[in-house]
Design a protein around this nucleic acid. Structure first.
Lengths: 289, 289
DNA sequence: ATGAAAGCGCTAACAA
DNA sequence: TTGTTAGCGCTTTCAT
């Protein structure tokens, strides 16, 4: 049968199928930043899972912009996808409600929107932040700085919250916070410059993600700062580049593909109000010992 | 009108529209490796251009696998996209012919498939390779190594070809070639280790892409090799990370977004047998002087 | 069991 | 101008 189909060059018309069924055989995956491996790995996990289930993925990029996010959702709605996996930027309960009315299950990554009935999968960022700071404290660092981005997305805020709490528990003063306007390697580089201008460097730095940590470590190294002797650095995400950095980076590992896989399961199970929280893990490399 | 539509929450059914028109209002973009900024930047350039023209993008990832590429194309064919932009892995003339028969214009990135009638947009990699080596020679490097991946995709082969030719013209012996099994930062790291095992290091290294160059520079630095004093390194692509690397990386800049933009223009113009070649540019940073 | 027919929502062609 | 209708290719239902 399949052979005959291939022979004749028959190709099913998905538009007709979707029209007849009232819903497309696809799931939308809306990613916040395609150049951050954290998001693409999550999306790949989701895609693998949904391919296995016989679905196809429609990838969209919001680039962190509410406007672009809206256009992604408009597109997915017009396409009649059967569900949406999204790292939301400005998605609110009313839009989610509307999507759900149209029969599209929405699963949020790393965020919850109260009152929308939609499910979510996230990593416990408070725990991750705490893990990071407890590690810095355990190796004897007392003067700790936190590098984040402003406006601060909830996951970063949670990481900082966990960090501050762990610091308070250890009896240390609250960490110095450096806020950048984005969370790229270039931002990490600028953060390092700002830190160097202060004159005295903290002896421990927790960066809200690996990309910033890499940019920061590179800039510090370039200025003769010895990592980890002069200053221990810990990142967050455990992207591939972390392991091959100049100073292999201690970081908080996130089960990114698992995140995408779980999200797919929830969408396909049409689950309401389910919230899965995964645990992050400390990965110790050279940048902290 | 639009206001009323929004008010009533009307959403156009794209499946019905596509069925009626016989073709969807979308273009497929097939990317080889979503974790390489080179490809994602190209795809973003394409997406921006096609959005401007009123189209939506269907992103697919082949992950460099012929099998996955085939599935991407099957998907796009079923979706009835009006055109496809692709960095081909194993796409042959017969498949292209079939797609074209179905009314889908195919534009290839960085590769040509003879006899298929499809257009292409590429960067002149032979020129890029030559540019890289001429720069190394100009700063006095005589013992040059080339780091590539095996199996070697045409763009990398062309870069190496240009490099070898430039070397021959300068009257130097052919470069030592190190082949890795992939072209990631981890592969660059392994290449560095292999080079260090040889005992004598070349004084100039040309890596087939920035990711490998970054992994290589990191590993060499970690082993006490001074870049560029002991060994100058040049990459290829000019990804964002190149500028913020420990040793800011000299590289060959590729107009990635422009590549995507031009490809979109060709698809939408339904151009046959047009071949646009863009010129790369040398960007000198610290890793070479 | 196999076959015929209706209808999903849209657009293009045609009628008034 | 405005309104009506046929039909895209599929799935599902209903009849044989």
């Amino acid at each position: 049968m399949q052979a005959a189909i291939d022979e004749l060059g028959f190709v099913r018309n998905e538009a007709a199928r979707a029209l007849r069924k009232g819903v497309a055989h696809t799931l939308g995956v809306v990613v916040e930043d395609i150049s951050n491996p954290y998001f693409t790995d999550m999306a790949r996990g989701a895609e693998a899972a949904l391919n296995t289930a016989g679905y196809d993925a429609l990838w969209c990029t919001s680039d962190g912009s509410p406007e672009k996010e809206r256009r992604c959702l408009d597109f997915l709605e017009e396409q009649g996808v059967s569900g949406i996996i999204i790292t939301p930027v400005a998605l609110d309960a009313s839009r989610i409600a509307r999507l759900r009315t149209r029969g599209m299950q929405v699963v949020l990554i790393d965020r919850r929107v109260p009152g929308a009935g939609s499910s979510s999968v996230s990593v416990d960022h408070v725990m991750g932040g705490s893990l990071a700071v407890r590690h810095l404290v355990a190796i004897g660092r007392t003067d700790i700085a936190f590098v984040t981005a402003e406006p601060e997305p909830p996951p970063l805020r949670q990481r900082r919250g966990g960090a501050l709490r762990a610091l308070a528990r250890a009896g240390y003063p609250p960490a110095l916070t450096i806020s950048m306007t984005e969370s790229s390697a270039a931002a990490g580089q600028s953060a390092a410059r700002r830190l160097l201008e202060f004159g005295t460097l903290p002896n421990g730095i927790f960066c809200a993600n690996d990309l910033m940590a890499i940019g920061l470590v590179n800039e510090l190294t370039r200025n003769g700062v010895k990592i980890p002797q002069d200053c221990a650095v810990i990142g967050y995400d455990d992207i591939d580049l972390a392991a091959t950095a100049v100073v292999p980076l201690t970081t908080i590992h996130q089960p990114r593909r698992e995140l995408g896989r779980k999200a797919t399961e929830l969408v396909l199970a049409d689950a309401d109000n389910q919230h899965i929280v995964l645990a992050p893990e400390l990965v110790v490399r050279d940048s902290s010992e």
